[in-house]
Design a protein around this nucleic acid. Structure first.
Lengths: 152, 152
DNA sequence: TGCCTTCCCCACCGGTTAGGTGGGGATTAA
DNA sequence: TTAATCCCCACCTAACCGGTGGGGAAGGCA
């Protein structure tokens, strides 16, 4: 279960747009420098985010990117789906597309529960939350447990 | 966030050993046929599980595999770690190995919380639970929500 | 002692993905 | 008209995923 570089970069890019909200559009180059993301790679990511309706763009001098809607209405799940597609997959398929037989049958509800649990986090945190350094309480509680920081 | 074929196969293989517990060792070929897993591919997976101390093996006629300990003490997380390494990674690294600066700083606790949440599921479900078709209540509740079955 | 069975190790392989780069065209502001 | 900026496409290398094949090592049995 890996968070890809694209996903990580995308969240950071959107975040960078969020904290510069209100002013002029922000150039891809500016975002790239601020977050230390390869410029051309970031352009592809921003293209995905635009097609998904997360950001808006304007070309030409003084152009750049800005959020397409309020930061409080953009969840981390939105961003990740925009660049990576489905959040959780098993062997490349959505859990609902699987079929198990015999004793393996309870595996399906297990994967479904896992996905629901992941969504609970990623759909419950907005870009505004992160920008304000104010993660929702349930998330803060999870991160506060010392065990969560251990690598078993 | 994908569950690899290796992980899926590994859980199903261990499960197959669990339901045949008590008798003779089970041949890889038998597990492969029962769970429709490519035989040679499965052998590699069983090797990983053996090295991780999840299963025991015996060679020669009448040989095969069996669980190394009680099914109730083997969690799904144990099995997945045995074949795929760390459960959650960001850009190939463990979350604790990351460093974010500036406005992206709250990303670290977010990934940590995400990992903790995933672990809660995978470490909370044992092979015995699945074999008995008796998933823990919290998992059952998650899977019972209709929204968990939708593909947004 | 052979012989059969089964695991065990290693090498390889084709296709996909991840991560990244480069060039040039389209659009817009000044 | 010119400079800036996004936009699209092609490409590239390395790694990974899923899978296969051959042969050797260990164990049971006659």
């Amino acid at each position: 279960m890996r968070i890809s570089a694209r996903a990580d970069y995308a969240v950071r890019a959107v975040l960078e747009l969020a904290v510069r909200q209100g002013g002029d559009p922000v150039k891809a180059e500016t975002v790239a420098a601020a977050q230390d993301i390869p410029h051309k790679f970031l352009e592809g990511i921003l293209g995905d985010l635009r097609r998904a309706g997360v950001v808006d763009s304007r070309r030409g001098g003084g152009g750049g990117y800005r959020l397409a809607r309020d930061a409080a209405s953009i969840t981390v799940a939105d961003v990740i789906r925009a660049v990576d597609g489905p959040i959780v997959s098993v062997r490349g398929e959505r859990p609902t597309g699987l079929s198990y037989t015999g004793s393996a049958q309870p595996l399906l509800p297990l994967w479904i529960a896992l996905r629901a649990n992941v969504r609970r986090i990623l759909e419950g945190v907005t870009v505004a939350d992160i920008a304000a350094d104010a993660l929702p309480d349930p998330v803060k509680e999870l991160a506060a447990e010392p065990a969560a920081w251990e690598n078993p």
